[in-house]
């Protein structure tokens, strides 16, 4: 087995039976992972197309609906994911150089960031559920009255939402009734919001599972992770999850003018 590597400190690798050379094997893994990521791009891409179409058809409804989202929590989550992407890249680098402790350290931070992301997401989701923003028969929408509602005053908002519809019938002519159904284009926004962020969150959970497994394997010095390739591939996946969020944040949280 020939190992002629550019970097003197790079850890040794093993060759599978179907390959001839270690370089070939490495490139195959990387290209294979990228091909998988291409399918993921198309997977999320279809949702982005749906978002773009509906946003262009119902610009105002989307602009109104998105005010219910908490921009600051979204910003926090973007920050968390960018950080985790950085630490994931560092973990791959450390693993490539055979620095076990540093690898474990950076992987741990990446995993913690992923958990942090999910915690923030949990806070956001529970607020949306409290306000009946989840699409379906219980969907309910109220136009935020003040700018403070936009700023994430969750406790105040939730109390209002739990009560009866704020707009009472007697403020309108007798034959003119407020209709929740008329506001359903916002349900469309929230459907896309939940599907897209939910699917992204699902990818984060898979990422935690993969990175956590790697962490354990490296911790217990399992032979399958002598090679840096598993960490490299998990890193590629994790960066992809980050990229999806890089687009989700401006397109879902920052619609139109604030």
């Amino acid at each position: 087995m020939s190992l002629e590597l550019q970097h003197p400190a790079v850890a040794p690798q093993r060759l599978s039976h179907q390959f001839e050379q270690i370089d070939q094997q490495n490139e195959i893994y990387i290209v294979g992972m990228w091909t998988f990521l291409v399918t993921e791009i198309m997977f999320f891409g279809a949702l982005f197309v749906a978002l773009t179409v509906y946003r262009s058809v119902y610009p105002d409804a989307f602009e109104q609906a998105h005010t219910a989202l908490n921009v600051w929590l979204g910003l926090t989550n973007t920050f968390i994911l960018l950080t985790s992407s950085f630490t994931a890249a560092m973990a791959v680098r450390s693993k490539m150089l055979g620095e076990r402790t540093r690898t474990l350290f950076f992987l741990a931070i990446t995993i913690m960031c992923a958990f942090g992301f999910l915690c923030v997401k949990y806070v956001e989701y529970s607020a949306e559920f409290r306000e009946h923003h989840f699409p379906g028969p219980n969907f309910h929408w109220e136009q935020p009255v003040t700018a403070s509602a936009v700023q994430g005053d969750l406790s105040a908002n939730s109390q209002v939402a739990l009560g009866s519809p704020k707009i009472s019938v007697n403020e309108f002519p007798a034959n003119y009734q407020p209709q929740q159904l008329a506001l359903h284009k916002r349900e469309l926004f929230f459907s896309l919001y939940f599907v897209m962020t939910g699917l992204h969150g699902f990818h984060v959970i898979i990422g935690i599972f993969v990175l956590g497994t790697l962490w354990l394997l490296i911790y217990f010095r399992h032979p399958t992770v002598d090679d840096y390739m598993p960490v490299e591939l998990a890193g590629l996946y994790w960066h992809f999850v980050d990229i999806v969020w890089i687009f989700l944040y401006p397109l879902v949280y920052l619609i139109g003018k604030q």
Partner: peptide, 27 residues
């Protein structure tokens, strides 16, 4: 008629609530 806010003509206040399609009251 169904969802006036989706395409409100400029210059008019957003006061109209729509009439959803259906057979119930106000529909």
């Amino acid at each position: 008629i169904i969802n006036p806010q989706a395409q409100r003509i400029a210059g008019w206040p957003a006061i109209m609530s729509g009439f959803p399609v259906g057979s119930g009251d106000g529909q």
